[in-house]
């Protein structure tokens, strides 16, 4: 049971001012590195909460779908340009980022994933693929600067980051669609 400790250490490390300043200084590392790492820290810490409050999770997240929903809402919220801007300007939003992504996205995802059947798992990936393509389109071709804190070039870079991640997810979806694992097992 070391993983919650590692998760906490990761979260604390990400909260250190030099690290958070470095990651937040570039738009794409802010959204595509710091935020996923916060979720990862939550994934690591989930076991602690699952052991501590087993009834809460079995009652409120019986089939995994509520957790999935919560995860998706939090992730969608943090992919808006405005929320990133606010995280940089308002301390309260920054604090919310460091709480919501590990505990309201990472922890529920870890709890939900094993409970979900492959329909929901694939639905989640398809949803995020579409979301990423749309966000990629938004960030690359937006005629205006979307964030006060980041230059247009950074915005375009982030857009291509979304498109390349979406491409990877499409490859994965094609792979799992065409691969019949039962033939190999």
């Amino acid at each position: 049971m070391k993983s919650p400790v590692y998760g906490l250490l990761l979260l604390l490390a990400l909260m250190l001012p030099p690290i958070s300043n470095l990651l937040e200084s570039i738009m794409i590392t802010h959204m595509h590195m710091q935020m996923p790492l916060l979720v990862v820290s939550g994934l690591f810490m989930a076991k602690f909460f699952q052991n501590r409050f087993p009834e809460f999770f079995s009652k409120w997240n019986e089939n995994g779908v509520p957790g999935l929903l919560l995860f998706s809402i939090i992730m969608m919220y943090w992919s808006l340009p405005r929320t990133m801007d606010e995280a940089l300007t308002l301390t309260s939003v920054e604090v919310f980022k460091f709480i919501s992504l590990p505990f309201l996205a990472g922890v529920p995802l870890r709890d939900s994933w094993p409970k979900l059947n492959s329909f929901w798992k694939h639905a989640l990936i398809i949803f995020f693929t579409i979301l990423f393509l749309a966000l990629g389109w938004l960030y690359i071709w937006s005629p205006v600067q979307l964030c006060n804190n980041y230059l247009v070039i950074e915005q375009i870079t982030l857009g291509w980051g979304f498109i390349s991640t979406a491409f990877a997810m499409v490859v994965y979806l094609i792979y799992s669609y065409f691969m019949d694992f039962s033939k190999y097992e």
């Binding site: 870079t157 980051g161 390349s164 991640t165 792979y175």
Partner: peptide
Amino acid sequence: GLWVVCMIVLVGMAYVIPLVD
């Protein structure tokens, strides 16, 4: 297939920033 996807993600992480620039 999964390893290839991980590789693509990592390549994206490495090359998107400089290539766009």
